[in-house]
Amino acid sequence: MNGNKNVLERVEELQKLASEAGIDISEELKKISDKVEESSSSAKAWQRVELARNPDRPRALDVISVICDEFVELHGDRYYGDDPALIGGIGFINGIPVTIIGNQKGRNLKETLARNGGMANPEGYRKALRLAKQAEKFGRPVITLIDTQGAYPGLGAEERGIGEAIAMNLREFSQLKTPVICIIIGEGGSGGALGIGVGDKVYMLENAVYSVISPEGYASILLRDSSQAKHAAAMMKITSGDLLSMKICNGVISEPAGGAHLDPAESSRRIKDVIVRDLADLMNRNPAVLVRYRNQKIRKFGHFVEDCSDAT
């Protein structure tokens, strides 16, 4: 980063010298500046990706242990089985009963294998839907903690209807007559994130990322070069700042200096503060109004207006 700063300073010096000598090299210098800025942008985006994937980053259960007074995990989808990659249960936040659903990654090889790297199977999404509908029935708000590369793309998952399970969640979560707050705490990857990512409020931790595909996948498919993943990360606009500017998320939750992995407890407390603040507002709203505004927000994603005023 300091190297880029030095290059830009030298470019400014060259511009000054060229102006004094009456030489026009502005076009060449602009190309250099653009290249440097592009490199800097790629480095910043990739740094976020690496922080989002840090194995010491707080996982869903770590966050739950801080934000909840008590928590009881529930299991099973009542169709096939239980999915340890997607956990859920009932907790109390400052005495308020809530249903919490989240992707759970592991910290080491044994845990990662047991949790399937946080990549849920169909039964995980069906469990999430069962708990969400239960929350709606009993008037409990739903909190989702998103941290996954995506849904599991295995043969068994396809056979058991992973696409249908995610699609069903998208539809049903959009219609839940209870407050839904979604927080991306690490990676928010593709349909795996969307399956529990439809809510009244969607937040991202400062160093979280949210995208339709991984930078490596984007680079391999569209750039035809997997080594361009760092450049792809900047092109994809996947950081919290990018998503906030596009109004995909409602806000960014700051992390301790250096990243959430350096102080997981403080990061979790900041998440709790946002949840408590929003629950005080959302729980006082008419459920039908929540659903209406939730759907209006969803329909605005990707919407743009082309300015044709100069067209002849």
Rank of each mutant, 00 (worst) to 15 (best):
S214P: 09
P215S: 04
P215H: 08
E216T: 10
Y218Q: 01
A219S: 01
A219M: 00
S220F: 04
S220A: 14
S220N: 02
S220M: 02
S220Y: 07
I221R: 14
I221P: 06
I221F: 11
L222W: 14
L222S: 04
L223G: 02
L223E: 02
L223D: 03
L223M: 15
R224H: 15
R224M: 12
D225Y: 03
S226M: 00
S226E: 00
S226R: 00
S227F: 06
S227K: 15
Q228A: 04
Q228W: 02
H231K: 15
A232S: 13
A232N: 10
A232C: 11
A233S: 15
A234C: 11
A234I: 08
K237F: 08
K237H: 14
K237Q: 14
T239D: 03
G241D: 13
G241C: 03
D242Q: 07
D242A: 12
L243M: 14
L243D: 05
L244Y: 14
S245Q: 14
S245A: 15
S245F: 07
M246K: 13
M246I: 05
I248A: 09
I248S: 06
C249V: 15
N250Y: 03
N250H: 14
G251L: 06
V252T: 10
I253C: 12
S254R: 15
P256Q: 00
P256V: 00
A257F: 10
A257I: 10
A257K: 12
A257G: 05
A257R: 11
G258P: 01
A260R: 02
H261G: 02
H261W: 12
H261M: 04
L262A: 02
D263I: 01
D263Y: 03
E266C: 02
E266Q: 10
S267L: 05
S267C: 12
S268W: 06
S268P: 09
R269A: 05
R269V: 04
R269C: 04
R270I: 06
K272M: 13
K272P: 06
D273L: 03
I275R: 10
V276I: 07
V276L: 08
R277W: 06
A280T: 13
L282V: 08
L282W: 09
L282C: 11
M283H: 05
N284R: 13
R285Q: 13
R285G: 05
N286F: 05
N286E: 14
